[in-house]
Design a protein around this nucleic acid. Structure first.
Lengths: 279, 279
DNA sequence: CGAAAGTGTTGATCGGGATCAATGAAGCCA
DNA sequence: TGGCTTCATTGATCCCGATCAACACTTTCG
């Protein structure tokens, strides 16, 4: 008994944990099969380089499992992580032959890869898919700018608090921010990467996390796992009453009146708040 | 004597100084006329707000003349400029009802505006134009990440040097970086905006610019105009031997070997270089 | 199994740049 | 013309966080 040719055989995409997210979710039927055809899985161990800095970047793709870091190294060896990529995030740079930063495995990772040129051709041939890529690029741009704010004018304490909040959101695959008692945050990367992402040092990261625990905001389970004891205080310490990091649509509050009434006026300096880490 | 209806009358786009740049350059014939139909010009004086932070953003468009700043204000009044927009840059956020930062006139500006929803419809109906928007969004993302590096791990001196280089490139409408003796840099914004963009203070900006002059790198003509005396040193001081800020495609050098051989290894801290501002 | 390397923590010290303060110059308007 | 505001600059001081150093603990590997 033969099955009709119109019955599609089970394909690797059908078993993919992220098939309902990212560009894959937007691709139906024919396009899905085309993606399936040109994709290939690769795994990398923590620390391996997927794409070297300024190297010819032949592949793009999705993170299936694990975390990637995008890292820029400047002349004298200083480094800055410009983004972490979690499952369902796109990695690589479409429509440019060279990446401007290295893409490395921050943990063991599993990737769904496409030949860059083939993927670009698919995008151009399928405006719906390209539209999804545009939407996700716009979200990444918003997130990058939020990070600029963090790096440009917030304290290390605020950066760490914001980082924990973001990690929770990304690891929990949720966009909601309600707090469940005993909520757990599992940070998938080490102090080094945290420091390189937050524009600070491992020592400052360590001290700041300890300070959060001492203040009763979190409880340290081990170096990578924390229990959130006071979610509200964690949010407050991040320096923003609303957290609009990635994906969340901003609230409607208009802050212009602050400047307009002169109640705050434009700041003279960076105006970093005084915080006492010791208590 | 009547002209044939196939002869298109002169339209405002035909007189536009940026008609050969931005999305307009990619739009030919019919699409150009459609853009022409839905666009409208508006001017704002320096300091005026085009779109308030987190406000319903009904318009997007192109900068025709002048400079816009995208500024984020956090709870206690601290601010960070997350981008400056020069002529031919797109402003506003397509495919989202709210902007995450205010868009303000940094100088007197002239804008070519579109109703956001109408522009989005045009993009969806014209994949070629949407493709151009994707390309420019990807470039903006690269630029935002370069800025993250600057804010995250570079000194104020490096930030100021990099800023001057970027301003020169954007104001001169060129992507080339060759240096002409007596080259002039005209900074269109004041110390306040420079500080808010560079994540520092007006005092530090002032001191750093003076230090550059004292070292013979630049000559100060007035507060906003400088002559570049030593372009090579300015580039060196920016902390990068190649300047890949916005639009420039990265060179092919691969720096992984540094880490791989352990010659530099991964930095422990931010490793900011020691510089003596006084000489 | 012991040496070596990597990771996280804590203490002591230092410095780049923020903050506070004061001045001069330039634009604005009644 | 003179008060008023904004802007740029310079000096004095302070402090957050980088740096340097030491140590415990874990993992790796010959």
């Amino acid at each position: 008994m033969r099955t009709g040719s119109h019955v599609r055989p089970t394909q690797k995409c059908d078993l993919c944990p992220i098939q309902h997210r990212s560009v894959c979710a937007a691709a139906g039927g024919r396009i899905r099969q085309e993606l399936n055809r040109i994709s290939f899985r690769r795994t990398f161990a923590a620390g391996e380089t997927i794409v070297g800095e300024a190297e010819e970047a032949g592949i793009v793709g999705n993170v299936v499992r694990g975390v990637l870091r995008m890292v820029r190294t400047i002349a004298d060896g200083r480094q800055q992580i410009v983004g972490l990529l979690f499952p369902s995030d796109l990695f690589g740079r479409v429509f440019a032959s060279h990446s401007r930063y290295a893409i490395e495995a921050a943990t063991d990772v599993e990737l769904c890869c496409f030949d860059r040129v083939a993927f670009e051709a698919l995008l151009v041939a399928n405006p719906d898919v390209e539209h999804e890529v545009l939407l996700s690029t716009l979200d990444e741009l918003d997130a990058a700018r939020e990070w600029m704010v963090l790096l440009g004018c917030q304290t290390v304490l605020e950066r760490v608090a914001a980082f924990l909040i973001i990690v929770r959101r990304r690891m929990m695959k949720t966009t909601s921010d309600e707090w469940i008692p005993g909520m757990h945050i599992s940070v998938p990367i080490g102090r080094r990467d945290m420091a390189t992402y937050l524009g600070t040092t491992v020592e400052s990261i360590s001290r700041t996390i300890r300070a959060l625990a001492r203040r009763g905001v979190i409880r340290i389970i081990d170096a990578q796992n924390f229990e959130v004891v006071r979610w509200d205080r964690l949010v407050a310490l991040s320096g923003r009453e609303e957290l609009e990091f990635d994906g969340g649509k901003a609230g409607a509050r208009d802050r212009r009146h602050l400047a307009d009434t002169g109640a705050v006026a434009r700041q003279t300096g960076t105006g970093r708040p005084v915080v006492d880490m010791e208590k």
